[in-house]
Design a protein around this nucleic acid. Structure first.
Length: 132
RNA sequence: CGAGUGAGCCAGGCGACCGCGGAGGGCCGGUAACGGGCCUUCGAGGAAAGUCCGAACUCCCCAGAGCACGAUGCUGGAUAACGUCCAGGCGGGGUGACCCGACGGCACAGUGCAACAGAGAGGAGAUUGCCGCCUGCAGGCAGGGCCCUGGUUCUGCGGCCGGCGGUGAGGGUGAAACGGUGGUGUAAGGGACCACCGGCGGCCCGGGCGACCGGGUCGGCCAGGCAAACCCCAUCGGGAGCAAGACCAAGCAAGGGGCGUCCCGAGCAUGCUCGGGACAGAGGCUGCUCGUCUCAGGCCCCGGGUAGGUCGCACGAGGCGCCGAGCAAUCGGCGUCCCAGAUAGAUGGUCGCCAGCGCCGUCGACGUGCGGCGCGACAGAAUUCGGCUUAUCGGCUCACUCGCCUC
RNA sequence: CGGGGCGUAGCGCAGCCCGGUAGCGCACUUGAAUGGGGUUCAAGUGGUCGGACGUUCAAAUCGUCUCGCCCCGA
């Protein structure tokens, strides 16, 4: 509701998902979609904002590589942040293949899965967001 | 020019757009809590890594002693400390610049191990050989005869076999066999003796703070290897770790178990409570002994409940520059700078240009010119420092060594 | 941050303390018995002992460093 009040008091569109219980709820009660690079899970949170969490297993690589993958995923989600409708908790899990993917492949995967999950405000806006 | 040694440094640069975390300052909305946005500024490494050592800091609340246990191990120095660093000694490697070394132990007392081979593996051993002596009955060698191709008998011998003794030099085994060379001596030999050399020990002299080195003299050659085998000696070590620890908020705060005996006095429900005293005991101090602290008041254990916020938390054995002391590690003085603080964890994404390296193509001009493609390592702070170790594409600087060529 | 364990034949494990011969079971190969298969019996192949360096005459074993995997505690 805060983003409708005044232009100067826009709320942050994206928040981080930080609680272990939240992660577990999204994984167990939400729906999941996947492609060879990432797994995406989504679950309604009843709030007026979107929370996104990222999971990169130690099996993917060492600390530098895991940080790099998280940054690519965060940057990809940021590209779609204006298009996601509020009220969702999203968890994105890295698979083995992302370690050999570049940014555009990761963004494509995440955009495609967000579209499959149906968390965009409307479908045509999602398509325009995917190109840019 | 080629090959190499040592020391040190860098870790691509610039720009545009969109983002992230900290600090400071305004602004906007809101009573406030708070939220949003703007400006300025700062924002990973030489190893941030492995967590192998050492400390700071914090708590336990005493750490005092001994044993045990662990670590270290040439000498001197540096340092807050170290298993680190510097200098030196000794030993080893390299033509050399240089590099490597867990390098205490006859300061003292012990124990243990060495497969196989070999005679013998620790104060050992005697097969063969060498040397001396000995009988010729049995056995050895040589020759002859007989039965007949294997025995028997006769003769001879100390060269071969045998017996006794000496010896450990030679051959041989082994990773290792109780000095080496030459000589004297001897029946043959042996440090049995002599000369020189090597090594060991004692004493003396000289140099050095010292490890140790140089020289002399005497003894003796009887003194082996492994202590990353037990062990001994010297030195050091209280334990835990920022999830330490402090505060705030929230929540559970129900219940169970453990905490000696005796004597005296009082109370009553006649075996419990209270008070006093004595004795021991129990528990903590990471194992044990002494020692110390606590013991009727709360403590400990189980169970139960939270895992939110603030501090710790970034001015420090701090970085840089200059000067001085020292061979150096390092230390002192002056000036200057403020230089990451996340917490599902910031420091990123895309694009362009210029340099670097490699490959390919091209040329009236082989110029490293032009064009294209590719590569750009190892790796991400988590309380903070000092080291060590390990990973690492490529490049730069200085000093030095060896070889070849030219002048 | 602290602590512990493992790595040996294709697989699961002994051997390590106290150094000298790497062994067991399954599997694999060959042969015998059967018309064929299973089963059984006999024989056999197969191991850089995770890696590097060191101590030693000699290392799976002892020491140091390192790699990988697994498990605890706060």
């Amino acid at each position: 509701m805060g983003d409708l009040e005044h232009g100067a008091s826009r709320q942050r569109r994206l928040e981080r998902l930080a609680d272990s219980a939240d992660f577990r709820r999204v994984r167990e009660q939400g729906r999941c979609w996947s492609d060879p690079r990432v797994v995406l899970c989504a679950h309604p949170n009843g709030l007026a904002r979107v929370r996104v969490g990222y999971a990169v297993s130690k099996r993917i690589g060492k600390a530098v590589r895991r940080n790099r993958i998280k940054r690519l995923m965060r940057e990809s989600v940021r590209a779609y942040s204006d298009l996601v409708s509020p009220g969702w908790d999203i968890v994105i899990i890295a698979r083995q293949r992302v370690s050999v993917s570049d940014y555009w492949e990761v963004q494509g995967s995440i955009g495609h899965l967000l579209g499959q999950a149906g968390v965009f405000r409307s479908t045509d806006v999602a398509m325009t967001g995917q190109t840019g």
